[in-house]
């Protein structure tokens, strides 16, 4: 059950993460153009960083979980 749960979540978040990186690659020129302007566009890198941290953060967490590398819970 443990492995199945980790596998499902790794696959879901992994797919989302790859999609996000692909989109970043696809629209990199537009993103850079807007970031370069600064000012009111300052939120662009921050919003992107937050979205990536949630999706990729979850993916990496479940990834190690799937490989059996998990925290020791003993007090």
């Amino acid at each position: 059950m443990e492995n199945q749960r980790a596998l499902t979540k790794t696959v879901i978040y992994g797919t989302l993460s790859v999609t996000l990186y692909f989109l970043l690659y696809l629209f990199s020129e537009q993103i850079i153009e807007l970031s370069r302007q600064g000012g009111r566009y300052f939120m662009i890198p921050i919003v992107i960083a937050f979205i990536f941290s949630v999706v990729h953060g979850n993916f990496t967490g479940y990834f190690w979980d799937l490989l059996g590398i998990k925290a020791k819970t003993k007090k």
Binding site: R36, G39, Y41
Partner: peptide, 24 residues
Amino acid sequence: ALSGLVDVRLAMIILAGSLFGIQL
């Protein structure tokens, strides 16, 4: 970012590796 100095591509590529590392 207000001065338009952040290269979010570089940041996200480093983040891709560092999130694997920080979890570990």
